[in-house]
Design a protein around this nucleic acid. Sequence first.
RNA 1: GGGCGGGUAGCUCAGAUGGGAGAGCGCCACGCUUACACCGUGGAUGUCACAGGUUCAAGUCCUGUUCCGCCUACCA
Length: 886
Amino acid sequence: MVRGTLGRAFESHEAETRWYKYWLENGYFHAEDRSEKQPFCIVIPPPNVTGMLHMGHALNNALQDIVIRFRRMQGYNTLWMPGMDHAGIATQNVVEQELAKEGISRNDLGRERFVERVWEWKAKYGGMIINQLKRLGCSCDWSRERFTMDEGLSRAVREVFVRLYNNDLIYQGDYIVNWCPRCHTAISDLEVEYNEENGHLWHIRYPFVDGDGGIVVATTRPETMLGDTAVAVNPDDPRYRDIVGRSVILPLVEREIPIIADSYVTMEFGSGAVKITPGHDPADFAMAGRHNLPIIRIMDGGGAMNENAGLYRGQDRYVCRENIVADLKKYGYLLQVEPYLHNIGQCYRCKTDIEPMVSRQWFVKIAPLAKAAVAAVVKGKTRIVPATWEGTYFDWMNNIRDWCISRQIWWGHRIPVWYCDECGRIIVAAQDPQSCPDCGGTALTQEEDVLDTWFSSALWPFSTLGWPDQTEALKTFYPTSLLVTGFDILFFWVARMMMMGLYVMKDVPFRDVYLHALVRDEQGDKMSKSRGNIIDPIEMIDKYGADAFRFTLAAFTAQGRDVRMSEERIEGYKYFVNKIWNATRFSLINLEDYPEEGVSVSKEEESLPDRWIKARLGRTIDGVAGGIEEYRFNDAAAAVYQFVWHELCDWYLELIKPILYGNGDARSRLAAQHTLLYVLKTVLKLLHPFMPFLTEEIWYTLVPEGGAIMIAAFPTVEDGLRDPEAETNMGILMDTISAIRNIRGEMGLAPSKKLKVLIRTQDESSRSIVKAGKDYIVAMANLEDCAIRGDMEDLKGVATAIVGNLQILVHLEGLVDIGGEKARLEKEIAKINKDLAFVGKKIANRDFLSRAAAAVIQKEEGKYRQLCEKHAALDSALKKLLSLGP
RNA sequence: GGGCGGGUAGCUCAGAUGGGAGAGCGCCACGCUUACACCGUGGAUGUCACAGGUUCAAGUCCUGUUCCGCCUACCA
């Protein structure tokens, strides 16, 4: 097979489908349960089954795929474990909405039928995101794909629940929880988001039972007064000291409630007296515990007032508020209303105002679990990157509160608890029990509630690998190597995986956690439907190709920074794709007659550009590999971008053109072809983790029998690549060429005009470097002739530049523009004067000389000397220009 | 109220371990040179938020101020 040719442009869409299929068919994504190779494993943050790929997913998964492909190429037994989350409330909502269109509710259907419907929905519409991940190029081991509601994962959930329960780490009780009246369920503290809203502070007078007067309380939620069971003041408050212990009459309700003293009350706020509603306020609930107050719940699950609300029964809580306020006013209890800005807790899914409400729920006693999870990070068993997040992690873990895990919905893992209808005994078991172990009764009723979706997600790193079975995969891949996720779910998910992993597996779930930032729009705003600033990843892939899109994501992923995304930027990296494509086309054309089996080229046959580009390639390998290893994706991307565009294309390809076009001997042409092919192949491998499709397509054409690039070995820096001498020498030639080009541009000499140049230096070694590289200078600076001499006689009609110890004189011939050259030299000299003043001041400073490091002093003195020389050279050039004339 | 991150070129951002600043895009000029105009060559642009301090030397370390984000929190 011979090398092929490439079309005019990369057809991304066609290539993407073709190569993804090819990879799948060849099983390249598949990880071995057992292998001689070192394991490397990432578990995917499971997207919601209802989810569609958004920018956050795209970033998250592009980064994972970059690391995974990199490690796979490095020879690891690489597993990227994919799957989805059943997303209890979200999915139930979707299906309920579907039912609503048919005019029925889930209650009409009943639990069993409803859950069936959800499964049907999932089969039909669920998991769109999986196909979208494939469009991105994700190399997950799809043969292992899991779903949190799978039989196996459900078994893991039950098993963990039972263990926790038997260890007294799960309990049931009546506590105040965050209740979403729309979702009709309790949610955890984390699922509440607080937003500032303009409200009011109502001042209400509660009259004393005995005697005149009363006490004034201030509240933002007057409707909750129906559930008040006390009024509290601070024990140190002189205003109220005497009335503690007395009682007041709750207006409208006519209930007698006590005035109690509790140091929780802030004297300075409002009137210094607080109404206490233990049934509907977390702080009040806590106070009720301390003072043994009755707890009255006044609302139902939908946020409407219940039978305890008397006349207000059936009213929605906000309607009720208006009525209460009106009534208070009517009866003279309302003293004052002031505008008040405060935080309202809302359901993070549906934005409905949360109602704190007392109800019977299941909780995980979390402090002991959190303690171990903190210790693991302190000991460095798990590393959080960037490390600044460790502090946040510790703060949260150390102040953590028990986790409410029961949800009053139907879609999810039903809690493995049964109640004996006969004797009332609670049975907690992994397997459905047949009878009551106490009374032997067979009439058992299972707990209605399901578990928080995050409960099953917390088990993800080991449940997906087969736990509770001791599978080979589990032994090989746990603890996993890396977790990549957004910082927004550090608490929701990462922390809980840490706790569960340590509890169940006795080891951390992952060695490294890389937390990336959020994707925002170019203004820095969060992308959201309501803002209308969403960029759809799939649309971007269609338009610019997955490779350009992925590269853009990587290039903008600096640690600790949000990713600002705009279409323009993706387009910019599409240009990079095009550049790579065309550099390859150029190479292919010029490799046509290069033998497939290659040639062996000795060190001596290599040209300076050959040696130089290989040396630069070596540094690029370090940059890319180091960047990915340290999760500095922008650095890795920048390193390869810079190399391909500004070293390979801008310099190397241009430098070898004359050689390739046959201006030299056959051997040096072969040497250039050899190097070109080698460098191109290597850089494609460096690019592959970022641009899998493009590189595979090119690789296939360039190395038809080389197998897939995705399983090629990732380059390492061989000794032959290090060549500082070539870098230095080539650097001199490049600076020389740039200096001539600069004169051409500044002096307005046409690009097409071939110039005559004289390069002079008394330094032997520089002269020989330039002599050896003369042909490159002539070609790259478009010269008619380039003389290199050691004598320093005066010349007229030239423009001068100084590079190191080289004096570069460009003959201006007929078009002498003394004014132009004078201005150019003066500008240059002015710049040097400024630098000279600065460095001069420094090395004249006694303190600097006595205190700075020797190396620094040496460096500064060297700099000064060079500046002086350059200054002198330019100055004499200027003088000659003026004295000699045209 | 606490905590964290950030204010560097017109824009978006890089700048371990202190030695007077970089990239990409944009802008200006010139070029269709047989890979690429999704290109090439050259050029311009910065009181590194502000004020102090440490140091021979500060974008980089310390303190304070200010502005902007985010996280977190039971002052009703």
